[in-house]
């Protein structure tokens, strides 16, 4: 597995740290889409582990299976085969409602198009994430305000998405994703719709969430501007993890340390 090999050089150069337990573990994930002759194998046996305190980028060309993998890791889609464990719970055999509970309790989502509710204010958009968890009332409202201030939107609480810039909307989405303190944050192309400045601001925010709050953040992206913020870059091609790069401590950008041609191995 690439992960072990890529981690090794960094470990040699730096003082060894205790290895954190993964909060999400995917083993040999296969996903077939469609039926019959039109079946497409979107994922062909993916292994991936996410640990707390790390911002991981999942990069790859269009159609490589990034979003499918993200959907499976987020318990939104179920794999055709393979094993997924989220916060110690194996997802195999869980009903859609049980998967929803798993998402609710452990996963925060950030979407490319923000997916904010246009009829709700910034504060209400964040509150709804707590409301679906049954957290209501003053405490919930106070918590939402606090998180919106953390992402720099303390002055925009009552504004509706239509009155916010793209960057501000994505920050509301980030606040919505983290307000319930999930252990995993999954982001789908978080900077794709943003200009450079706003994209950097959002990536800084995600890196802070990973490093300061100890969450595991996985961002699907093909935006090279995001690389400086990553602790780890996982590359996917044609439904396979083809490489993993880990940033050695002290470096600003990830350095390619290993590329395992899983596709060749499969061939």
């Amino acid at each position: 597995m690439t992960r072990k090999k890529s981690a090794a050089p960094a470990a040699k150069e730096n003082k060894p740290k205790p290895k954190p337990e993964p909060v999400l573990s995917a083993t040999n994930i296969v996903k077939e889409l469609g039926r019959g002759a039109g079946t497409v194998m979107a994922l062909k046996g993916v292994d991936l582990r996410l640990v707390p305190g790390e911002l991981t980028l999942l990069m790859g060309p269009s159609g490589s299976g990034k979003t499918t993998l993200l959907s499976i890791l987020g318990c939104i889609m179920t794999p055709t085969s393979g094993e997924l464990t989220v916060a110690g719970t194996k997802t195999a055999g869980l009903s859609p409602d049980e998967l929803a509970v798993l998402r609710r309790d452990h996963i925060g989502f950030i979407f490319q198009s923000y997916n904010l509710f246009p009829t709700l204010s910034a504060l209400e958009n964040v509150r709804i994430a707590l409301d679906v968890r049954g957290q209501k009332g003053y405490e919930a409202a106070r918590r939402c305000e606090e998180v919106l201030r953390e992402v720099g939107l303390g002055h925009r609480l009552r504004n509706f998405p239509g009155n916010l810039s793209g960057g501000e909307q994505q920050r509301v989405a980030v606040a919505r994703a983290i307000v319930s303190s999930p252990s995993i944050v999954l982001a789908d192309e978080p900077t794709a719709a943003l200009d450079g400045e706003n994209g950097n601001a959002v990536m800084e925010l995600l890196a802070r969430i990973a490093h300061e709050q100890g969450r595991s953040v996985l961002a699907v992206t093909h935006d090279p501007r995001t690389l400086p913020y990553a602790d780890r870059v996982v590359r996917i091609e044609d439904g396979l993890i083809v490489g993993e790069e880990r940033r050695p401590e002290g470096l600003d950008a990830p350095e390619i340390t290993d590329l395992t041609k899983r596709r060749k191995a499969h061939a």
Binding site: R103, D105, F109, F111, A129, V132
Partner: peptide, 16 residues
């Protein structure tokens, strides 16, 4: 429908 799908993705129950 996309808002309801977002709610579902956020982990809301069908009942909600």
């Amino acid at each position: 429908i996309n808002e309801f799908a977002t709610l579902r993705a956020l982990g809301s129950s069908s009942g909600y």
